[in-house]
Computed example of a mutant assay.
Amino acid sequence: MESLLPPDYDIVVCGIDEAGRGCIAGSLFVCGVILSPNIPLALKAQLKDSKSLSETKRNMLAPLIQRFSDFYLVKKTHQEIDDKGLSLCLQEALKEILQNLKAPKYIFDGNCKFGVDLLQTLIKGDSKLPCISAASILAKNAKDKEMIDLDTLYPQYGFKKNKGYGSKEHLKAIKDYGYCPIHRISFKLKSLM
């Protein structure tokens, strides 16, 4: 199905995406991106959903995206998520992005606005709009870097590989060693009960 959006639609909006929502360890990162009208077409063509790109490719694209965009990245720690809940953290992060990036439209990947009135949503937006793809890449890049750093502090959990998600090996490590200080203890893991 052909898109009804004009070709430059993504330049006049702020695309927003997150990384780490489904993690059981580490922070949540939410990023807003307004692509520059001067972004090279070759770079724009490489912007895809971060999950479809290798970590190496994301690491290569992240500084280029930063160079050719206005962006704002919000980090919500595991402690904030445990204290306030994931939904409130997402709402706060989205509001912070809207306060710090000025755009005629804000489009968040997914189908939930988390109570933020000025926000529009687009399911699978990270594979449909380059500005949301760019936000997805920057958020995922920040999440990956955090987990690689945390892996040096807590190597037994395999954060460098699992990035904080509940892989079989990660869940086994929690069974063997218990939670470490950066686990989200508010997330109830059925497999550990």
Rank of each mutant, 00 (worst) to 15 (best):
A45L: 10
L64W: 03
K175M: 11
I137E: 05
V116S: 03
L138Y: 01
G115I: 08
S186M: 01
L43V: 01
S133K: 08
L138W: 01
A142E: 02
Y154G: 07
K76D: 10
T56E: 14
K76S: 15
L138P: 04
H183A: 14
Y154T: 03
L61A: 08
A173E: 09
L88Q: 15
F108A: 14
P37Q: 14
Y9W: 14
L35C: 00
C89P: 09
Q156K: 12
S191V: 06
G166V: 03
N162S: 09
T152V: 09
L118Y: 02
R58N: 12
P63Y: 06
Y9V: 11
E96M: 12
D8N: 15
K163G: 05
N111K: 15
D49E: 11
V74L: 09
E146L: 01
C31K: 10
I65F: 02
A19V: 05
K48W: 02
I81D: 07
A134N: 08
M1W: 05
I97W: 08
A45E: 15
I148F: 07
L28V: 04
Q79V: 09
I148Y: 02
D149R: 14
Y9P: 05
I11N: 09
A173G: 08
I97V: 11
A173M: 09
S87H: 09
A45K: 10
I148N: 11
Y72R: 13
M147Q: 08
E80P: 06
E18R: 05
A142G: 01
P104S: 14
D176T: 11
D17M: 04
L129H: 09
S52H: 09
G164N: 11
D10E: 15
L192C: 06
K168I: 08
I81C: 01
G164D: 12
V30F: 05
L118G: 15
D70F: 00
D49K: 00
L47I: 02
G164A: 11
Y165K: 14
D83K: 14
M193L: 13
T121N: 15
I182V: 13
V74N: 01
F68M: 14
I16W: 05
D17Y: 04
L189G: 04
L150R: 12
Q66S: 14
I174C: 06
R67Q: 15
L138A: 12
L73H: 02
D8V: 05
A25L: 07
H78E: 09
A62C: 06
V116P: 06
D151G: 11
A45S: 12
G85N: 13
G20E: 01
L138F: 00
P63H: 10
G26F: 05
S52I: 07
K172F: 00
D109I: 06
S50L: 01
D117K: 15
C23V: 01
L189N: 10
M147I: 05
F29C: 04
N141P: 00
K140S: 08
D144N: 02
S3P: 03
F108R: 03
N141S: 15
R21C: 05
Y179C: 09
I97P: 00
F71R: 14
L73V: 00
L73W: 00
V30Q: 04
G125C: 06
R21L: 10
C180P: 02
E2R: 12
L73P: 01
E18L: 05
M193D: 13
A25S: 13
L122Y: 00
Y72S: 07
F108M: 13
K168G: 09
F114E: 08
S186P: 04
M1G: 13
